[in-house]
């Protein structure tokens, strides 16, 4: 094959990478600034939801792609992050960014607790464990409720319906949408930064074979726990963003089924490509809203998603994003050298 390229690639590749990162910055800016000019505020809220769930889907995809682990608890992790964020916002009045980090760290801690079963289990058994954790969270939060400015430890009061303050720099819907896009982009950059470094190499070996990873000096439990912590951290951040979007959270909107749905859509969207997370979130938030707009019950989306999942598992293991990538390379005649699998 073409073995003549290695010596010459170093500087052009760097330039390409730079131009690519500038391109990505422009893309993020465009995503953050353009839609508000075109859309009514209801749709802007939906799009804010898309931006937030993109981060969740990216966090799920990280575990699936890198370690082959199925987590059906990410909406519960969002809820846990959101709970902590709300509690701090009402209890201490700390700035939004502090609440967001605290929510992320709390969910990362929970993620690390999930990681313990993951050290010994994979596949169906791990999925079942995470699903049960999601179910347990739904029950607990239905009892506790989300803090809404009430007193006591749980911060819930039936009558006082306070609103969570948004970040000072993004208090209106337009600003908050852009804020969410930027935070999500930063979160995905954090994932990418991990993947191209030491952690990414360790995860790649673990996915290939744990025996090979161990015999190459990789501390397998540590890197598995790390992946769960990172994934949980991002889900927790997404949870606080969600709390900021609605300025409150409803305990009923975190059933275990939602975690299953967002996982399924992450597979449909494509776990091997960042665009896949965006597609997953768009399907998750936009399709029901669009159906409602057409006068069809939004729950009909579940039927469409079920069919899409079967389609993805049967014919497109890399999801819609993978199909788009194939299409693009066919259209522009650009082979990607088989390095995106």
């Amino acid at each position: 094959m073409m073995a003549s390229d290695p010596p010459v690639v170093s500087t052009p590749a760097l330039a390409l990478w730079r131009s690519r990162s500038i391109g990505l910055l422009l893309l993020v800016a465009a995503l953050a600034l353009l839609p508000p000019l075109l859309l009514a505020s209801l749709w802007l809220k939906v799009l804010t939801g898309v931006a937030i769930y993109t981060l969740t889907a990216a966090a799920i995809a990280l575990l699936y792609r890198r370690l082959g682990l199925v987590s059906l608890a990410h909406v519960a992790l969002m809820g846990a992050g959101g709970w902590v964020g709300l509690r701090l916002a009402y209890g201490l009045g700390t700035p939004f960014e502090v609440n967001m980090l605290a929510g992320g760290i709390a969910a990362a801690g929970l993620g690390m607790v999930f990681a313990y079963p993951a050290l010994r289990m994979r596949g169906l058994y791990l999925a079942l464990v995470t699903l049960m954790i999601a179910g347990a969270f739904a029950i607990i939060v239905n009892v506790l409720q989300f803090p809404n400015g009430g007193g006591g430890w749980s911060g819930f009061a039936v009558k006082s319906a306070g609103y969570m303050p948004r970040p000072a720099i993004a208090s209106n819907d337009v600003g908050y949408y852009a804020y969410c896009v930027v935070v999500t982009a930063l979160g995905m950059a954090l994932i990418h930064w991990h993947e191209i470094g030491k952690a990414g190499r360790a995860w790649a070996l673990i996915r290939r074979s744990e025996a090979a990873a161990m015999s190459s000096g990789v501390d397998v439990p540590f890197y598995k726990v790390w992946a769960f912590a990172l994934s949980g951290f991002l889900a927790g951040i997404a949870g606080v963003l969600l709390a900021g979007n609605l300025q409150m959270l409803d305990a009923r909107s975190f059933p275990a089924a939602e975690s299953v749905m967002i996982f399924a859509l992450t597979i449909v969207g494509g776990a091997w490509n960042p665009v896949g997370a965006l597609i997953a979130a768009a399907l998750y938030r936009l399709v029901p809203a669009l159906l409602n707009d057409f006068g069809v019950n939004g729950d009909a989306a579940y039927i469409i998603f079920g069919a899409a999942l079967i389609h993805a598992l049967a014919t497109a293991p890399r999801g819609i994003a993978g199909q788009l990538e194939d299409l693009a390379s066919r259209l522009f005649g650009r082979s990607n050298g088989g390095n995106t699998r």
Binding site: A213, M214, S215, S216, G217, V218, D219, V220
Partner: peptide, 13 residues
Amino acid sequence: PHQRAQWGLRRSF
């Protein structure tokens, strides 16, 4: 196993 690798043991499969 990973401590042995860090100590200086390597293997192929």
